[in-house]
Amino acid sequence: MDTPLIELVGVKKSFGPVDVLKGIDFKAYAGKVTALVGDNGAGKSTLIKGLSGVQPFDEGTVRFDGHDVHIVNPKQASNLGIEVVYQDLALCENLDIVQNMFLGREEVAMGTLDEAAMEFAATKALQSLSVRTVKSVRQKVSSLSGGQRQTVAIGRTVLRNAKLVILDEPTAALGVAQTEQVLNLVRRLADNGIGVIIISHNLADVFQVADFISVLYLGGMVASLATADTNYNDVVGYITGTKSLEGAAS
């Protein structure tokens, strides 16, 4: 297979005496969706925070696009093209979709906000994801449903030319129809060549959308599998610790 977009080798992280990540190996590829699963406390969020620079790793190698990198703050991660969509989304309800998508990176022409340019780019970004569910890109976020808000947050990463998008539990708060919408969006993100890492507790979602599944168990990576080569019961086994280390070490 080609070079992974992101590759972690022997990554460790501890908080005082507690080893939370105990030498993790992990890969994710451009154009593919990699699901990161594991029980509560397995270390998923810690892994993500290391990748996004919020809480840098203590030890280990991080390779982005084949180059060794040290990500020590969010700005650096963002410059590399790593964007995280956190569960709380961090949107401003009083602003519209375009304004939220451009927040902090506004287009300015002659000292004033270039609304036309921003509206155009935001529309294009949403169109690249085949978004049809929003009435108008000038709608206020307060009037959007949970799925539509997720759409805005994901659209924002496209606008920022993300190469790797990390989604933390994007469907946790959504109903069936909206979950479907968001999963389609995740798929399209990958189809556009972006590497996607998705954290989820919902294995049905994972099997629907992911190309690869990596399972964390108590701070160790116990399995990294192609979705096609595994099944629901095996993954549950890895997550709960009743099944261990088959082909994961390779």
Binding site: A90, L91, N94, L95, Q99, L103
Partner: peptide, 16 residues
């Protein structure tokens, strides 16, 4: 723009 953003959701503003 930032005034409205901070008024709407300071945490979102900070992260942006």
């Amino acid at each position: 723009r930032y005034l409205y953003a901070v008024g709407g959701n300071p945490e979102a503003g900070r992260r942006a």
